[in-house]
Amino acid sequence: MDQQLDPSNVFTAMHHRVTGEILHLMDGLYSNIEDGLFELAYRTQQDEQKRRCFDLMREMRFQRSRVVQNFARRLQNAFEAWVSASASDRAPVHSDQAQRMAHKCHAHFSGVLHNLTERAAYALGRDMERTSLPMGPYQVACHFVDAMRALHFDDQAIEIVEDLFSRFVLERLGPVYGECNQRLQRAGFYTMSELDDAAAHAS
């Protein structure tokens, strides 16, 4: 590893890239949310659920800037706490809704997420078992849920949009995760298998 590289600088650049991609994907979510809620409303046979979808459509449009700003602020605050040498590395408070949102994404990208976690643990000198990524699918979903709740969206409203958030945001993060993994590898932050290979070649 290049000793001139400051891990916090590398992670800050990576965080900016991931956050930019997430906020770009949020634009895509909002471009599709009305169609998604229309589709959901017309699939249900319950009049109350239909009204709920149409009310939520209007509320999501009205609250768009506040949702996005609140979400972005939580992503930034979580990253600053995570990268700080004085901060403990804790995952967000458990959320069943966030777990459901992140499940498919985590399954699809488990390999690259594992490598990213190993590289982060190595770069920051932390225990792999206690290292969670601030930009991981579950963490991102938690921040979205928290942002919605802070604006007084109830659990039913969040449940209605969770599939849309998964589809248009979380499940499209694969390329940026791959890019981050390559960036950390080039910076010399290694996975355990890469360290083992280097040791074997050195012996």
Rank of each mutant, 00 (worst) to 15 (best):
M1P: 02
L5A: 14
P7F: 00
T12C: 04
T12E: 06
H15W: 01
H15Q: 04
H16N: 11
V18C: 01
T19F: 09
E21N: 06
I22Y: 05
L25K: 13
N32I: 04
D35L: 11
D35Q: 10
L37R: 00
L40M: 15
A41N: 07
A41Q: 10
Y42E: 15
Q45G: 14
Q46E: 12
D47V: 07
D47Y: 08
Q49C: 01
R52N: 13
L56G: 04
M57L: 10
M60A: 14
F62K: 06
R64A: 02
R64V: 03
R66A: 14
R73M: 11
R74C: 01
N77D: 06
S86N: 11
A87D: 10
A87R: 05
S88D: 14
R90I: 02
R90Q: 02
H94L: 05
S95P: 00
A102S: 03
A102I: 01
C105N: 13
H106K: 15
A107Y: 11
G111F: 13
G111C: 13
G111D: 15
V112E: 07
L113V: 00
T117C: 12
R119V: 09
A120P: 05
A121R: 08
A123Y: 07
A123C: 11
L124N: 12
G125H: 10
R126Q: 09
R126G: 07
D127I: 02
E129D: 15
R130Y: 11
S132Q: 15
S132M: 15
S132A: 15
L133C: 03
M135R: 04
G136D: 08
G136S: 13
Q139T: 15
A141F: 02
C142A: 04
A150K: 08
H152T: 08
F153A: 01
D155S: 12
Q156K: 13
Q156N: 13
A157I: 07
I160H: 11
L164S: 07
L164K: 07
F165E: 01
L170W: 11
L170M: 12
L170D: 09
E171P: 00
R172H: 06
R172W: 00
L173H: 03
G174W: 05
G174R: 06
P175Y: 02
G178N: 09
N181W: 04
N181H: 02
F189C: 08
F189P: 03
L195S: 12
D196C: 07
A200W: 11
H201D: 13
S203H: 15
